[in-house]
């Protein structure tokens, strides 16, 4: 049976100051995949995610989440920004940051209550951070901060998860903990889309991959398209990785 399409991008072009950073992207992400977006620095990986989420305004093209525009499907989508995009000296605690994940379902003005707090505590437990719930966020290590971000996405209880470099600057234990949670999400039928840097781990972590460098180079199952040919097309140099069978 043909799988449902979770995210569909048509003819997307995004520019900063009239300089295109994404050029005419067509992309279909099937439901239930754990997908890596790979490409060199400046390839537009984060831009692609941010455009899908309506954070950036594209100059052309359209995006749909399960067939409808993003604005109508917000509740189906969770987003983990790059860890470096926020100020970790902000006066707040781990629990409070995780609670922010519930704000979307609350809407304007309404405040989080016990029910939201309970969801947040469960998510903290899931990422192994429950004992840090009252810790000020600047007092957490890089890996712990990333887990907090993941917990925040988990409380959104979404169908599609977008993550911008969740493995950046985290220790090995956290990396394994995160990928296990992502694999669990996929098992539960969720779609997970990850901007990823470490090409070596692509075959081990992901089942779907998109090569991106301003234009889309290729997209599909890792076992079919994660090869030297596509890597070379994406990274420009003669790229070789050994893929373990």
């Amino acid at each position: 049976m043909e799988k449902k399409i979770a995210v569909k991008v048509d003819d997307l072009t995004v520019a900063y100051n009239y300089k295109p950073v994404l050029w005419d992207i067509d992309l279909e992400i099937p439901e239930g995949v754990l997908m890596a977006i790979v490409g060199p620095n400046g390839a537009g990986k984060s831009t692609l995610i941010k455009s899908i989420l309506g954070i950036l305004n594209p100059i052309a093209g359209s995006i749909s989440i399960y067939g409808k525009p993003y604005e109508k499907q917000r509740s189906l989508v969770a987003y983990v920004p790059q860890k470096g995009s926020v100020d970790w000296d902000f006066p707040t605690t781990a629990l409070d940051v995780v609670m922010m994940g519930t704000y979307g379902s609350l809407g304007w003005i309404k405040r989080p209550r016990q029910k939201e707090k309970k969801t947040a505590l469960e998510a903290l437990e899931k990422v192994g951070m429950l004992s840090f719930k009252n810790r000020q966020i600047s007092q957490l290590s890089g890996g712990q901060q990333q887990r907090i971000f993941l917990a925040r996405a988990l409380v959104q209880n979404a169908s599609i998860y977008f993550m911008d470099e969740p493995f950046q600057g985290v220790d090995a234990t956290t990396e394994i903990a995160i990928i296990n949670i992502l694999k669990e999400l996929r098992k539960a039928g969720k779609t997970v889309i990850v901007v990823h840097h470490d090409l070596q781990t692509v075959p081990e972590y992901f089942d779907w991959v998109t090569f991106l460098n301003v234009k889309k180079i290729a997209t599909g199952p890792v076992k079919d398209i994660f090869n030297d040919d596509n890597l070379t097309k994406t990274y420009g140099i003669n790229y070789k990785v050994s893929i373990q069978e």
Partner: peptide, 10 residues
């Protein structure tokens, strides 16, 4: 705290 998250939440 997090402009990107705020935008994605609407």
């Amino acid at each position: 705290f997090d402009k990107g998250l705020a935008a994605s939440l609407g």
